[in-house]
Amino acid sequence: MSDIVEIAGVSKTYASGFTALKGIDLTVRRGEIFALLGPNGAGKTTLIGIVCGIVQASSGTVRVDGHDIVSAWRKARSLIGLVPQELTTDAFESVWNTVSFTRGLFGLRVDPAHLESVLRALSLWDKRDSRIMTLSGGMKRRLLIAKALVHEPRVLFLDEPTAGVDVDLRHDMWQLVSRLRDEGVTVILTTHYIEEAEEMADRVGVINNGELVLVRDKADLMREFGTKRLSLRLRRPLAAVPESLSAWRLELSGDGGELTYLYDARDARGGIGEFLERVRAAGIEFTDLGTTESSLEDIFVSLVRRRP
């Protein structure tokens, strides 16, 4: 089976002359949750817009489940659900009508039972007859998700699904995404919240200045960059790392007052208990200790900073 989304050489130069995307190549695998990270203006929404048919690419090709979005646009689009970044709704319509409308656009008959299940899943059932303008921001966000899911898409784009959403709703959203994954739906989301990508994504792509800087399995990424550090503040400065500790990955600060042990939390061999015993056995006393962990955020910041 082919990958569900195949983006090849996609560039976009807006009418203003601004180049928002520069030759993006990206494949998203069937059934995975892919997080697209990047600072404001990186080109995330533009890329999603191209795949969904809202923005015209200046060059390059996109296939969704093997269907080219230009030559087989109808088939490609029928597989996609999109939750836009902005809360755009028709204020005067009722929840029920707007969701039925979307289903109709995708060529499907209104199926009251299905509509009900979608609205219930997003806790909007009680609001089905309300006009959209009477909903709160979080409800509108859920409504947009309901609209994106009502035609049972195979690929769901969530453009900043949790921007301006409270903690509870954010966790609901995460649950929803993992439920969708269980149903085999591929989810591509953009976010500024690194913890969101850390929590949900199988793979992470980082986009900056219209270029895809990196695409990696989240687990690999965390392993590669995700080193933990245990720092000991020493009672008496050391001139050098003692011979008995040479088997451990250690760093001694310039003044010899701080000893740092670098380890991988996922690595069974790297237990800090044993290390601390060795330290004591070596006669080293310490006054304080602390651990730090590089998060996806650190990785992200270092990647984005590296390129001007």
Partner: peptide, 8 residues
């Protein structure tokens, strides 16, 4: 956006 991204 809804209409543009739908198979219409």
């Amino acid at each position: 956006y809804e209409i543009l991204s739908a198979p219409v």
